[in-house]
Computed example of a mutant assay.
Amino acid sequence: MKRKLGLGICILSCISTVYAAPNDVFTTIPGFEPDQNLTFSGSIDYFKAKSKAKNDNQRDYQGITLGAQYIISPEWYTDLNYWNRTIKYGQNDNDVHSWKIGLGYVPDFQLGQDSSIAFAISAWGNSSSHFEKSSATKYKEYRLTDFSMKNPQDWQLQLDGIFSQKWNEQNTFTIFANAAYSNVSVDSLKSTLVNKNCYFDIHVDPNNYLTGTLNKPCTIGNTTANEMTLSADAKVYGIDIKKDLNYNAVILGTGFNWQWNYQNFNTLFGYNFQYYLRDTSDQAFAGQQEVKSNHIVGLELNYALNDQTTLFLQNQYFKSSFVGSIPSLYNPITSSALDKGYDYISLGARFNIF
């Protein structure tokens, strides 16, 4: 009997982790258990995009996630997470480093029997030395190939409110709401710009000044041009790096999840809705469909091997790929490539140290 009780406690404490984006859908309130207050976790993450376009395996992904949570007292807890991601667009491998640090507070009062509430504040973000996509991208009246952003990065400050109701020993229902301030920045970009039948290798600097040279000879009317240069404000070509690739935003989210426990098994099913308010220019997404919201569905399966170790399998489905989890990858130029759904799978383990 003691063995089963211990496993039950491990199940609850091992999975009771408060996440921030990109894992809001799994948000729960941690329980304080003596000798089980420090938890480490790690997982291998993978998904395969469903694109059927030839030679375009865009958004393929593999990576690792590392996390730690320390429950300081029955009222306070903190957590730290790190993601290393490799995102593949065609032949381009893009490495993204993501992080999150959070602090939570569980007040010492209840709204009802077997209920609890929590408030959390967290900072999280993403950074990469570059993000490249060689396949063609339609942008307004132009076509871009071999597109590359230099130093795309973002950071967010997020506030969460969480309410959890335990119905019985097997079932717990959680609802949550959050709001985050987001800052997105990109240093510069380069690409091959296709204007009619002429190809130009262009570079746009942080001041939005565009320079370019003819990539190969092209015919204009009855004349063949072997050399040609571009030098102008990038706004002439519909690009505004200061406002459209560098912007602030507000991310609003809400959702729920349900946990079911049985001996050393646990399942969690959740839903998360996100809405985005960006301060990009009015013409930023002209002729394109701006993704202003996202729907996320998550499923997690847990199995406790013993009091200290739990194995887990997570699956998340996102209606629009990295829009809310890696904001710096989303802008008017990349929007057409980031409006597709994907399935995200993680296989990992959690360890209760003490």
Rank of each mutant, 00 (worst) to 15 (best):
Y209G: 02
F351H: 04
A180P: 07
D201C: 00
K140C: 04
N151S: 14
Y181A: 13
N84S: 14
T192Y: 04
W76T: 01
K196A: 15
E300K: 09
G31I: 13
S188C: 05
Q62K: 07
E141L: 09
T267S: 13
T224D: 01
K242M: 05
R278P: 01
T223L: 11
W83S: 05
N352I: 03
I87L: 10
G221C: 01
T192H: 05
Y199N: 12
I162E: 02
S321F: 12
G67C: 03
A123Q: 10
Y247C: 03
S185I: 10
F200L: 00
Y142Q: 05
T78S: 10
L313C: 00
G31Q: 14
K292M: 01
D114T: 11
T27D: 00
T224I: 15
W124C: 12
K2E: 15
A180K: 08
T280W: 03
N331R: 04
S325R: 06
G341N: 05
Q36F: 07
D233C: 09
Q165T: 03
T145F: 04
P107N: 04
Q288M: 12
R85Y: 11
T267R: 06
L12M: 13
F131V: 09
S51G: 13
H295V: 03
D343Y: 12
I239E: 01
W83D: 01
F26S: 02
A304V: 07
Y82S: 07
I72M: 10
A180D: 09
S231D: 12
V297W: 10
V250F: 10
T27G: 06
F109R: 05
N23M: 12
F119A: 04
L157R: 01
G8Y: 14
K52H: 06
A180W: 00
N171G: 05
G253L: 05
Q289T: 14
G8M: 15
A53V: 13
M1R: 13
S164L: 04
L66D: 02
Q274Y: 15
N57S: 12
T137K: 02
D339A: 04
D279T: 07
D45W: 02
A349M: 12
